[in-house]
């Protein structure tokens, strides 16, 4: 059991962070509003989870202006994608072993 647990990524223990990552690995990029609608969370909640993923260098963002309104696009980094895949593999292993 213990060796499995070590392979799980702490960053993905939270459902919202897991959701953000799942959405970002299958889309080139998503903006804040789309993520918010997908996850059904408040602005503040989403922002704090985005910040935490950003700190782990799993996601990055680009600020743009769309019709003079700020529009932030979020991307999964290469690092983030491989961490996500490792996390999935760890879950798979755990489920297979039981």
């Amino acid at each position: 059991m213990k060796e499995f647990l070590e392979q799980f990524d702490k960053a993905f223990e939270n459902k919202i962070r897991l959701g953000i990552m799942s959405a970002l690995v299958v889309n080139a990029h998503l903006d804040f509003k789309t993520l918010k609608n997908l996850l059904g969370v408040t602005d503040g909640n989403l922002a704090s989870h985005l910040k935490s993923l950003e700190k782990s260098a799993y996601i990055t963002y680009k600020k743009e202006f769309l019709n003079r309104k700020p529009n932030t696009k979020y991307y999964a980094t290469v690092q983030g994608k491989s961490a996500f895949v490792r996390h999935l593999e760890a879950i798979e292993k755990l489920l297979k072993s039981t």
């Binding site: 459902k15 897991l18 959701g19 799942s22 959405a23 690995v25 299958v26 889309n27 998503l30 789309t34 997908l38 999935l88 879950i91 755990l94 489920l95 039981t98």
Partner: peptide, 19 residues
């Protein structure tokens, strides 16, 4: 185990809905 099963379901659902 249940937690990770529900995590997997959530991942799948999010990938589907987001794309």
């Amino acid at each position: 185990e249940e937690k990770y099963k529900s995590d997997l379901a959530e991942i799948r659902d999010m990938m589907h809905r987001s794309s």
